[in-house]
Amino acid sequence: MTWETHHEFAAQTYVVTRADLVRYAGASGDFNPIHWSDRVAISVGLPGVVAHGMYTLALASRALTSWVQDPARVVSFGGRFTKPVVVPDDDEGTEVVVSGRVTSLDDGIATIGLTVTNRGQKVLAKTEATVRC
């Protein structure tokens, strides 16, 4: 697979509902109640239940994997958690949008910068992957 610098990948949109957070809590082992109890989330100053940062980062990794196809080519991947994704208690949930582009190419390694937004605001910062071309 070869890309040019500044290559833009197709943005991916994922819907997040409360049921997704419950499922992720079980699969990951992170049962922090701010991810399933409005009472606890509000008591620590949040507007309500928020997604696990690692769930949002996993959605970004899902987009990355759809772009690079083979996960074995990924050398590194990560991001900083800057804003919580508030997930309402309804059937519609909220949308997380992941876009990405190649920011540099160096000696067979592509650096991909990802932008992850919810309700028009960035929720992760410095989200970046390095991938073998």
Binding site: M54, V75, S76, G78, G79, F81
Partner: peptide, 10 residues
Amino acid sequence: VVHGDQRFAQ
């Protein structure tokens, strides 16, 4: 405790 950032080297 708040999770500030997370990075994986594979």
